[in-house]
C-alpha cells in the first residue's frame, strides 16, 4: 500500500509515477539548478510559514475573548510593527531574487552547440528535424513523433508517454533546440532536462540542453493546444555519440 505513494520511493527510473510529489531524477545541469533553487526557496517558505502561523496561533491563544476581554477598538495604527512587516518581506524577496535571476540567465545561455535540432509542434504531435548534415543533394533527417495508443502498448511502455519515434540526442553534447509551432501555440517541456519553452507559430525559439547521462526522458506538451493536447507526449532518448552517429546514419 505504502509503495503506491511515491514519497516512500526514491528511484523513479526517469519516468513520472502516479501520485508523485517530488521531482523526476535530473539528467541535466539545468534541471539540477532548478531543483536547487526550489530547495533554497523552500527554506524561506518554511521560515515564513512558521513565523506567520506562530503569530496567528499566539493571537488566537492569548487574545481570545476569554483571556483578553479588552476590545482594542481604537488601536488601528502602530508605526513600528508596520515598518517591520513591510521591510522584512522586501528583504526576503531581495534575497530570493538573486539566486533566481542567476539561474534564469544561466538557463538562457546557449553554449556553443554541437548540433541543432528543430522541434515543431503540430496538432497533435511533435516533429523533429536534424539538418546539420545536409549535403548539396542530401535530404535532412526529419520525422514525426506520435504517441503510442493504449491498445498498441507493449509491456514496459508508458501509457500516454511513449512515442513511436523518439527524439535521439547524443550525451554530453550541448544541443541547440529551435522550437516552433506549425498551427497553434504548443510548449515543449522535458522536466529531467530542465527545458520548457513555447512553440509559437511564425517564431523560432531557442533553448539549450545537455544530457549528462544516457536514458529516456519524458515530457508533455505544456500549452493547451486543442482536444488532443494531452496526447502529444515528448520522449527524448540520450545515447552515446557513437550510437547517435549510427542512428543518424540509419535514418
Amino acid at each position: 500500500m505504502l509503495q503506491n505513494f511515491s514519497i516512500f520511493n526514491t528511484i523513479y527510473n526517469d519516468a513520472p509515477q502516479p501520485w508523485q510529489l517530488g521531482f523526476q531524477d535530473s539528467a541535466a545541469p539545468a534541471f539540477t539548478g532548478i531543483v536547487d533553487l526550489h530547495n533554497i526557496i523552500f527554506f524561506y517558505l518554511i521560515v515564513i510559514c512558521v513565523g506567520v502561523f506562530w503569530v496567528l496561533g499566539s493571537i488566537m491563544y492569548y487574545f481570545n475573548t476569554k483571556n483578553s476581554p479588552i476590545v482594542h477598538k481604537y488601536l488601528n495604527h502602530g508605526t513600528l510593527i508596520e515598518l517591520i512587516w513591510t521591510i522584512t518581506p522586501a528583504l526576503i524577496l531581495t534575497v530570493i531574487a538573486f539566486p533566481s535571476f542567476r539561474l534564469l540567465y544561466l538557463l538562457d545561455e546557449v553554449t556553443s552547440p554541437t548540433i541543432t535540432i528543430k522541434v515543431i509542434g503540430h496538432q497533435w504531435y511533435w516533429s523533429y528535424e536534424y539538418s546539420d548534415y545536409v549535403t548539396d543533394s542530401g535530404q535532412s533527417v526529419e520525422f514525426d513523433s506520435y504517441m503510442i495508443p493504449e491498445s498498441d502498448l507493449e509491456l514496459g511502455q508508458f501509457r500516454l508517454l511513449d512515442v513511436d519515434n523518439k527524439m535521439i540526442i547524443p550525451v554530453d553534447c550541448h544541443i541547440r533546440l529551435i522550437i516552433t509551432g506549425a498551427d497553434v501555440i504548443h510548449s515543449f517541456a522535458v522536466p529531467s532536462l530542465g527545458v520548457k519553452i513555447d512553440a509559437t507559430p511564425g517564431r523560432l525559439n531557442q533553448s539549450s540542453i545537455l544530457a549528462e547521462r544516457t536514458g529516456t526522458f519524458y515530457g508533455q506538451c505544456s500549452e493547451i493546444c486543442g482536444v488532443w493536447h494531452g496526447f502529444m507526449p515528448i520522449a527524448v532518448e540520450a545515447v552515446s555519440v557513437q550510437d547517435y552517429l549510427a542512428w543518424i546514419d540509419s535514418v
Binding site: P113, I115, D132, R176, V241, Q242, L245, I248, D249
Partner: peptide, 14 residues
C-alpha cells in the same frame, strides 16, 4: 565508428 565520425561532422551554426 571511424567512418561515421568522418562522414558526419558534429558541427552546427554557432
Amino acid at each position: 565508428d571511424g567512418d561515421l565520425s568522418s562522414k558526419y561532422v558534429l558541427q552546427t551554426a554557432g
